[in-house]
Design a protein around this nucleic acid. Sequence first.
DNA 1: CATATTTCTTGATCTGGTTCATTTTTCTCC
DNA 2: GGAGAAAAATGAACCAGATCAAGAAATATG
Lengths: 206, 206
Amino acid sequence: MKIIPMDQSTLPTLDPLIEHIRKKVSLSPEEVRETLLSFKLKNIKKRQFIIQPDFVATHRNYVLKGSFRAYVVDSKGQEYTIQLAIEDWWISDYNSYIFQQPATMFVVALEDSEVAQIDYSREQYLKRYSPTFETFFRIMAERSTAFQQRRLIANLTQTAEERYHHFLEQYPRLVQRIPQYALASYLGMTTEFISRLRNQKKKAKS
Amino acid sequence: MKIIPMDQSTLPTLDPLIEHIRKKVSLSPEEVRETLLSFKLKNIKKRQFIIQPDFVATHRNYVLKGSFRAYVVDSKGQEYTIQLAIEDWWISDYNSYIFQQPATMFVVALEDSEVAQIDYSREQYLKRYSPTFETFFRIMAERSTAFQQRRLIANLTQTAEERYHHFLEQYPRLVQRIPQYALASYLGMTTEFISRLRNQKKKAKS
DNA sequence: CATATTTCTTGATCTGGTTCATTTTTCTCC
DNA sequence: GGAGAAAAATGAACCAGATCAAGAAATATG
């Protein structure tokens, strides 16, 4: 019943999710049970979309394996990466999910991936079921705000080159795994520009 | 329906705050009482700082009257406006407040103002006192995330001119009240550039 | 109400990063 | 493992918006 396409693999479990939640709030056995009942495992193939514009984002996604990119596309077809996610991160179109309105973003798998999904109504149920979940989602939202604010500040105050280097320092692992165009559009610059930065570095090294 | 001119003033009350909270959650009489006990009214003179770098932001501030600007200053002395707030908005350095760490921002009054302040430990108490408050702050944080994401997308996808015009459409009232340099650094452009945009418009009109 | 300070305007010049076009490298999948 | 597709690199020309400088308007303050 479980099809595990990748070469070597662990049996997929929700353990990392429970761990993740327990870093923020303490869960009773019943709360753990409710959590396990609320989230569904899902395998997502590389290049597969889990959210698309005009459809309501019905789920919040916790990445168990793989990586994702959330992006918007402007009228000229230009893509802008809004969020990136690897293991132990969450991803969705929050404007769509929170307000249950049509999405404006695409969210696509960059690798063969596995996510734990909770749907909107089940999340509401969880929060009613126990204030612990209310607290958990409150903490998530707060951190998310704080994170976005730091990103906004970086975008306003730093040059393209500084943003690139700081990202490299902060997320060296992530950089290895995502394509250059995803990184470029996340940092608000062109792939050509990143390419030049990398090349300059090579030159300087030798 | 009540237009209150700048000079003479009404007796300050927390009524607008209670109204504000009740738009998001329903409050029992006891919860109203706890709210009233938790928030303190404070008068802030124009140019007065309520948050400064290196000091922990001890309060969350709800604006009852007046306006505020939150900004960071880079090594070259350049200022970048991170947040603006008028009546019925909240303002703080959230990275500082949420994590109770030293602030990186200044928050300054742009006009003679009045705020309702709650301090960090009292907020924690409120959330323990009733899950309603947990819910309220969760909703606040979620909307804040959604708002910031929209701003980030605007910054990534739009030209300086587009950002200026969209801001004008969305917040015509706000624009009247804040100095040009505050708007410019909020939108990520120079005051010179805004000045030119305004001038071009005048030309086109006549 | 006069003067000092802050904010806004205007012109000239400059530049970080884009755009466009082409080539090279790296994936992907039968 | 080889053809086709996707991603990255490279060069040349360009431009949106910044920077610098200096004056004009608006606000604050004694």
